[in-house]
Amino acid sequence: MKLESVSRPVARPGREMDAPPPKPSQVVERTKITAAAANPPELSDPVRRRIVVGKSAKPLIAPESTGLESVIDADERTRIVNTTESPWRMVCALAIDSEWGTFIGTGWLVTPTTVITAGHCVFDKSQMNGWARSITITPGRERERAPYGIAKATRFSSVDRWVSDQDPDFDLAAIHLDRPLLDDPDSVFRVGAFTDEELVEHMINVSGYPGSPGGGQELYWAKNRIRAVSPRRIFYDVDTSGGQSGGPAFIFREGETQPIVVGIHAYGFGGTPASMNMRVNSAPRIIPAVVEQIEKWSNTADGGAGDIG
């Protein structure tokens, strides 16, 4: 298997093709994480009391085995009001404009100028007729407040497995910004590929901007633990709904304050294979090839836009 970056076509005559992408491994055999921040963001006491850290042998909620909803039993999501704290300020509300309509989704900062989201938030042949035309990004949005300003982007990248095949296991993308949204270069998520043993039973946090509740203007967060992993997906008992696509599914390791994204939230219950016999939500799993691709998007000044077209 090989992942290649594919970017929304932009007019840029004479630009050379980027170097070929790294070759991914088939399974996660070793841990691979993007570099830690030089000065990791501190977590406030309220955030420390809220987030979940490390592993747990038991789930926080005991889901029942009936129904097919992305909200599992009672809605356990909590509204985050103080969105200027870490990690909430690194989560972005997205307003997406395309040829076939407008949408809302969620993204998260991996560098001050790179937002990672789901592939279907930037490219969807069936829903958008191809690439989004523009995306408006508001980090830390809290209703009408935009504490770090608002950016409008027109440069996006995804991977070949999403753009060519709409393969849900590779439903990821990058939005390239023209200017930093946050002044602090360390206010970013890390991205990590972990082995099955490391991930299973790890506590996980999922946040985003759903259409309801909150009308796409309020940040919500929920927690539980990772129920299962497959080579390309992680599955968790965490409430989500439409608008949270692209949101970070992240962990905190014991003793660390910088969150590590292990999955990009994309699908509700309907995305869980029947063979798993679980009512859980899921995210494309971060694998080493994805870490390498995100590093490449992060380290390229223009994100590699203009490779095709």
Binding site: G101, A118, C121, G211, G243, S245, F269, G270, G271
Partner: peptide, 17 residues
């Protein structure tokens, strides 16, 4: 906002306006 709340097949958790 319009979204798929429940379903028998995978759908992205995006919301249409």
């Amino acid at each position: 906002f319009v979204w798929v709340a429940t379903g028998t097949a995978p759908t992205p958790e995006i919301a249409v306006v």
